[in-house]
Design a protein around this nucleic acid. Structure first.
Length: 611
RNA sequence: GCGCCCGUAGCUCAGUAGGAUAGAGCACCAGAUUCCUAAUCUGGGGGUCGUGAGUUCGAAUCUCGCCGGGCGCGCCA
């Protein structure tokens, strides 16, 4: 099967923007007509742009068609523009055409061209601007995948908001989306968590044993250990002397030491915790798994609860442990070996990623036989492909960027398509009240943030920045219930619209959508014209957000909608004596409310009926 | 040192598959409510798009150098 670039596919499909399609059809005819006049075949070029004009003096829509084809015709752009305009068919929706600047063709449209959007929105409702056909095919989006060794921090929150919104956007633009969370429940970090819980448990049993310096000292470790003690009593108690017998020392860090010395101390701490893990395994047997299961269950429950509160849901939680236990982690790698990409050296098993764009080859199985994180993750990605997803979209933190090349190399080796894996990196999040740090103890968790600022404000804040831009999260602003908070600006627009309809009902009147079409010609005010244009732009904004994997485009769009609504609201009354005019205006704001709901839903932000 | 990301108004940021005179919010200044929610609106000042070259009809956007910041360069995860 040939894999297309998703970006290319989305550009190639006809726009959902009716006015744009209309103009494109007109230009296509003009081009065909001009082409036969010239005796030279011409087609609509790839670089064709038909966009709403930024400056009202440039009309309503502008195209660069003449500029683009001028090169192949080897003629002056303005001359080509004049030729095209001469061959442009008449349209009742186009009142005037101008050639401007270096050769832009500007279209001035009849009011009807804008008014029609109201009917489209009202009849399509929640489907306006959307394509739920799934025609683009299947895509697997993996995001968050935070290690289950502690609470999620604000950086994970960004990935959660981004990944979830992107998944919603892709599903609304013709993709069959599957959302997955990869649980790293098989690695060394989980073992460190396990012995951390065990040591706390032993302390709780009265044993005198120091907490490992590389362990997780957080409160949640104590919570799990207390739960185990409550449920299992002293089942896992072992004498401290026996536990520590023969273990290396756990060296204390010396802040004044030079860098090599500190590295040595850190190495000693790592060696100690590893030895403690081995000791725990041998002394506890099956009990080790019980403690580990308890620790993982508690962490995953907390993570799920937080994500649930954040409105982030997954179709599947995929366990790394399950890959290992089923043996797939090893058999999947065998396929790479059959392809000749695997070799043995220095006792380890390597993948020849350097042949496929990586800087160097990578270890799959260490000299001690243990699988690397990379090997298991690779098996996971192979399983994704096996399950029938030709396109894999991974959302990772920016610190993983050096990891992309090796995973992509492996995917390329298996599929022959280096484009089968797409990785979107989340740049780092800093807090206005200081940096986050996982072991610092005073980091702000995602749960804290949601509790403080609420899901709507938190998600909107995250999505108001491009994901490849560093984000400075202003907690005070996010939690402030004031007009400074950008999410309220948008939500207030929706609430205002709802309020108008409540007022209407209080007056004993009703809005009749069926009467709207014949009344829309009354929408002639500048604010109405502007708002109509914004609503008409929604399908393209959604497309742009999908194609560029950029939910923030939609966040900016809803702000534009709110902006246009507020200006309109302040300039004109909607509940007026003239029934036709009132119907027209109510239809317009009803459509505005619908578009706000549609877009906010894709951002995961609520659209309140009152505030 | 090498690789990736970034540098746009006082602050936080859009705009980057090349398009016309580079935008928004906040902050600052001046105004608007007998009327559907003022969490709103209207107007104003504010810029060598880090910098120097190049590519072409046209560059914030593409290429190269330089300056500045972030991240990554493990048989860690």
């Amino acid at each position: 099967m040939r894999l297309h670039s998703a970006r290319f596919d989305l550009i190639a499909i006809p726009t959902a923007f009716p006015m744009k399609s209309h103009l494109q059809a007109l230009l296509g005819q003009a081009l065909a007509s001009a082409s036969s006049a010239l005796g030279q075949p011409l087609e609509l070029p790839a670089g064709l742009q038909i966009d709403p004009a930024r400056d009202p003096r440039h009309g309503d829509f502008a195209t660069n068609l003449a500029l683009v084809v001028a090169k192949s015709l080897r003629q002056a752009p303005r001359a080509v523009a004049e030729l095209l305009v001469r061959h442009l068919p008449d349209s009742p929706l186009v009142t005037r055409v101008e050639i401007a600047g270096p050769g832009f063709i500007n279209f001035f449209l009849a009011p009807a061209a804008f008014q029609a959007v109201v009917e489209q929105v009202l009849s399509a409702g929640a489907d306006y601007g959307q394509d739920r056909s799934g025609a683009h095919g299947r895509i697997l989006v993996e995001y968050v995948s935070a290690n289950p060794t502690g609470p999620m921090h604000v950086g994970h929150g960004r990935g959660a908001a981004y990944g979830d919104s992107l998944a919603r956007i892709l599903a609304a633009t013709g993709w069959q989306v599957h959302r997955e969370y990869y649980i790293n429940d098989a690695g060394r970090q989980v073992d460190i968590l396990t012995v951390s819980v065990w040591v706390r448990y032993l302390q709780g049993c009265g044993e005198v044993i120091a907490f490992p310096r590389r362990g997780y000292p957080a409160d949640y470790v104590g919570v799990t250990s207390a739960r185990i003690r409550a449920e299992r009593g002293q089942d896992f108690q072992r004498g401290a002397a026996d536990v520590l017998a023969g273990l290396p020392v756990d060296p204390d860090i010396d802040v004044d030491a030079d860098e090599p010395t500190r590295a040595q101390i850190k190495g000693g701490q790592e060696a100690y915790v590893d030895a403690l893990i081995d000791r725990a395994r041998s002394m506890l047997g099956e009990g080790y798994k019980v403690i580990q299961r308890a620790a993982l269950d508690d962490q995953l429950a907390a993570i799920r609860a937080t994500l649930d509160a954040f409105g982030v849901h997954f179709d599947q939680w995929y366990s790394e442990r399950s890959l290992v236990d089923s043996g797939f982690a090893r058999t999947a790698i065998e396929r790479l070996r059959e392809g000749g990409h695997v070799y043995e050296q220095d006792g380890a098993t390597w993948l020849r990623t350097s042949a496929l764009g990586d800087e160097k080859d990578r270890v799959l199985f260490k000299a001690d036989g243990a699988a690397t994180y990379f090997a298991n993750d690779l098996a996971y990605h192979i399983d994704k492909l096996d399950r029938g997803y030709p396109l894999l979209l991974d959302v990772w933190g920016a610190d993983h960027h050096g990891y992309i090349a090796r995973v992509r190399a492996a995917i390329t080796a298996l599929t022959g398509h280096k484009d089968a894996l797409r990785v979107q990196l989340m740049q780092f999040v800093t807090l206005s009240s200081g940096r986050m740090g996982k072991r610092s103890g005073n980091f702000v968790t995602l749960q804290d943030l949601i509790s403080e600022a609420g899901t709507d404000a938190t998600r909107f804040f995250y999505l108001l920045r491009s994901h490849d831009q560093h984000l400075e999260f202003d907690i005070e602003l996010a939690r402030s219930q004031s007009n400074d908070n950008p999410v309220y600006y948008v939500q207030y627009a929706h609430a205002r619209i709802c309020s108008v309809f409540r007022q209407l009902a209080e007056r004993g009147q009703q809005f009749d959508p069926a009467a709207a079409p014949s009344a829309l010609h009354r929408l002639v005010e500048p604010q109405e014209r502007h708002l109509l244009g914004v609503l008409q732009r929604y399908p393209d904004s959604l497309q742009a957000a999908a194609v560029q994997y950029a939910p923030h485009q939609l966040a900016f769009y809803v702000r534009d909608v709110a902006d246009a609504l507020h200006s309109y609201y302040n300039a004109h009354k909607f509940l007026v004596d003239d029934p036709d005019l009132q119907t027209a205006r109510l239809a317009l704001i009803a459509a505005t409310g619908q578009v706000l709901r549609n877009a906010l839903d894709l951002l995961g932000v609520s659209a309140p009926e009152s505030m």
